[in-house]
Amino acid sequence: MSALGFAAQLLEILAALALAPLFLGWVNQCRAWLQSRRGPGLLQPYRTLHKLFNKDSVLAERASPLFRAAPYLVFGCMTLACGIVPTLSTELPLSPAADAIALVGLFALARVFVSLAAMDIGTAFGSLGARREMLVGFLAEPALLMVLFTTALISDSTSLTTIVRTLSAREVGIQPSLALAAVALVMVALAENARVPVDNPATHLELTMIHEALVLEYSGRHLALMEWAAALKLFAYACIGIALFVPWGVAGAHAPLALLAALPLLLAKLALGGFLLALLETLSAKMRIFRVPEFLGMAFMLAVIAMLVNLLLGAPGR
């Protein structure tokens, strides 16, 4: 693997670490604008992280070592996830280590640890959050896998770099199977990242929350890492959407200049994607927790239909 590959890999991970809070800030800012508020500014997530890192970490008396290790582990998982989704280049040294199925496994690993950590203290909200998170997880994970399978069938590969290379080589246009898969992915991303129709990131209303209930007992640096990991997860999902459905402009192998051009293009796509996410969140209302299975069941069906459409109509772009 070339030095350029390593440079691209490093750049991608660092970009993800640096940009993930900014992306979250951008989504929140857009939401504020759409709701005729001024908003806290784009840099608010950085300020929050800095504040939290400086604070003492208050641990519950019953906390086990698992509780303290989980934030680092979840952060590590999400960093790796951002590293294997090809956003800037398709020449990534980490790519052979983990393909699309392993990416789903990585998200599942992080989810299991977040839930176990939430159950560790043994409070009512912690176990409630863990149960809901796993509920959302077991419904969203197959849907995500089916979305990835649709693209894997098109490109005859589950390697993310091969998928992106194949999909970016086709002409610009809408394919029915990919369109259905894209809708399914958006629904999964909303649920997995605790965004509005499923969960409200801006509330601490006990009866409806999922993500906030999970991290309720965390404070200080542990909470900072959890929040950063959540931002990285949102960033990773945005990147998956970009990589699968608007991959044009990703640098191929041995193209240092294309790599430099890929970064501003990625920023533009992320800005647009973040705005659309904020718009979607503003336009929809939070649903009851018992409606979530229906919502995610629909995402699952859409993803399966996308795969069937792909098989019926043949692979597009070939």
Partner: peptide, 21 residues
């Protein structure tokens, strides 16, 4: 090109991010 999975590198990636963090 079709598919690959390297658990050792996978573990190393998670462990390295863990340790670095």
């Amino acid at each position: 090109e079709r598919a690959s999975y390297a658990p050792l590198f996978f573990l190393a990636g998670v462990a390295a991010s863990f340790a670095l963090a």
